[in-house]
Design a protein around this nucleic acid. Structure first.
Lengths: 227, 227
DNA sequence: TTCATACTTCAACCGTAACCGAAGTATCGT
DNA sequence: ACGATACTTCGGTTACGGTTGAAGTATGAA
């Protein structure tokens, strides 16, 4: 009957503010040292060391030693997912913290989620596509004839997408914004387009950085209302 | 910068064994009384009452008073999702607890996840479809010609599924089993078929109960190896 | 070799929260 | 009206875990 405690174990690990801060700091995919994580969590190094040992022991983190530094990173995408789900839960239940520190600004702006574009730009993209009638709606979006035509002109091969097994378009709730962005095969294709055209490049973590010309071209192509 | 603490709050709530037990007990969708939840968590009623007040205050639960009873249920599907994600994380990281109590037996056997069949039967179904060559593989399943033909005979209209925007087949990791079951439009269609044919009925919660004849028909139709 | 840096281990302190028994409140049945 | 049930509030105990300074270990630089 004791099925709860197994989830209580991981949850308790995520439930300490210091550990939560460290995990959030690692969410962009980088590997950080013990002292960097101590700084991020606002605790002394011995404390951080102890927390990291627990997280590592629980398999949430992987550590690798390089010289006299020890680098930690999240052990897998499921850890990121768990953090995102908890963030979603936290903001629905009202423990909202609207402001985000400048450190996460790039991540909130545009990031990779699985294989598509998330963050403010991802949400703006989806909104624009719905507004212009390319997609039927936000909740369970379907591609319209208008959309098919427009995307074809942009250079996205919808035939290839439809042949694949995965869904063409799929809403995906964004944790930093509170709205959906575009996932599915089409979402992945759009991200591919952005990178191929040189509008943006994918940084080592999950951050997507647009260059000025690329941002403009992106906005023009998808007719975003706000740059 | 304090972005972590907001997730720490919810996570800490899920991190107490007693509260985790209560939430898990509520996962099948039913509403339970304070004393039932106290029993499920293995604590005295005053303790349970305190925990429930916290969970309610945090918006994870909704309570409604009926006479001298007070019924609690999970406040939304996102809570269930968070619990499932944490379960998945717990079992990947090795905190596995293979045995499950008899109380959850029905839930592990067959349950609804979003709109398709999960649990042991869902996993068995997917395995059989791959084994018989209806689907290409487990990781990112595609429907084969054999599968198209077989499903057509069973009475599933693949044309209609393909026209929809959502993916036809989609793997979905099962938390009780460690394997994937079948999601997507096809997964939903199969669940619809099962209910329409009267093989099983959906209980108020998320449990799906097969009747003996239905279980046999289900196994025969999809050529399951183990009944 | 010698010193500095990066980290870990240790020991002790402190705060919070889980827990229960007893008493209090509300609702139902008789 | 009376007692029983279902739950909440209160008070006090207990224990677990987070925190840090100081000391110990390992790696790199001079």
């Amino acid at each position: 009957m004791k099925d709860g405690p197994v989830i209580a174990g991981v949850a308790a690990l995520l439930g300490d503010p210091a550990r939560a801060n460290m995990l959030v700091a690692l969410m962009d995919g980088r590997a950080l040292t013990v002292s960097e994580l101590a700084g991020a969590a606002g605790v002394a190094m011995p404390t951080a060391s102890g927390h990291l040992a627990k997280l590592d022991g629980a398999g949430l983190l992987t550590g690798e030693k390089q010289g006299r530094h020890r680098y930690f990173r999240l052990s897998g995408p499921d850890v990121t997912q768990a953090l995102e789900v908890l963030m979603g839960l936290a903001q629905r239940t009202g423990a909202v913290r609207v402001r985000a520190g400048p450190r996460n600004a790039a991540l909130r702006e545009a990031r990779v989620w699985y294989d598509h574009l998330a963050g403010a730009r991802g949400v703006a993209l989806m909104k624009s596509m719905v507004d212009h009638g390319w997609l039927s709606d936000t909740a369970s979006p379907g591609l319209t004839e208008t959309g098919r035509c427009a995307l074809g002109k942009i250079g996205i091969d919808l035939g290839a997408l439809k042949r694949g097994c995965r869904p063409v378009c799929r809403p995906c709730l964004d944790w930093s914004e509170r709205q959906s962005h575009l996932g599915g095969a089409l979402g992945a294709a759009v991200l591919g387009l952005i990178v191929d055209k040189g509008w943006a490049r994918r940084a080592p973590g999950r951050v997507v950085t647009f260059n000025p010309a690329g941002a403009q071209a992106f906005a023009a192509t998808f007719e975003l209302s706000a740059g």
